[in-house]
Nucleic acid binder design. Sequence first.
DNA 1: CGCTCGCACATGG
DNA 2: CCATGTGCGAGCG
Length: 155
Amino acid sequence: MNLAWAFLETPIGLLRVEASAAGLTRVHLAGAPQNEAEGPGWAHVTRFLDFAERYFAGEPVGYAGALDLSGATPQQAALWRYVQSIPYGRTQSYAQVGRALGLHPRAVGAGMRAVPWLLAVPAHRVIHADGRVGGFAGMEGVKAWLLAFEGVNPA
DNA sequence: CGCTCGCACATGG
DNA sequence: CCATGTGCGAGCG
């Protein structure tokens, strides 16, 4: 697959944004920057960069561009699409998401773990039913930072 | 109250 | 096969 990518310095670290012609394929924290690569998905990359810059500037925006779901299972696709609809500054528990989609709470956690896109799919807005932040692929600090940044009560 | 245990689902290593 | 980004109910101090 011919991919395009770019890097963006943000308050939570260096972000690497990657996309195919179908949409974003990955958004994650990278150690060191590499050369950018334009390709079929470049438009998706720039669209995300625009969103990210506004997000970190404090605007209550959400990424509404395309995501490349070619590698996702049906459950993941449904779950991620649902999570993408959770509005800025709001949170929902794993159980709530599970009830909305007919999935076991634990299955929701499993699905969230596999989210390939930081920010594009606001996985950080899904927390424990009792208010605890929960895990975040080994980066709980990032999750807590994002929630605080959006003005969510620390709990 | 607070802590532990067991169970249920889906995914990735 | 096993350990997760969980929730809920039960049991025990």
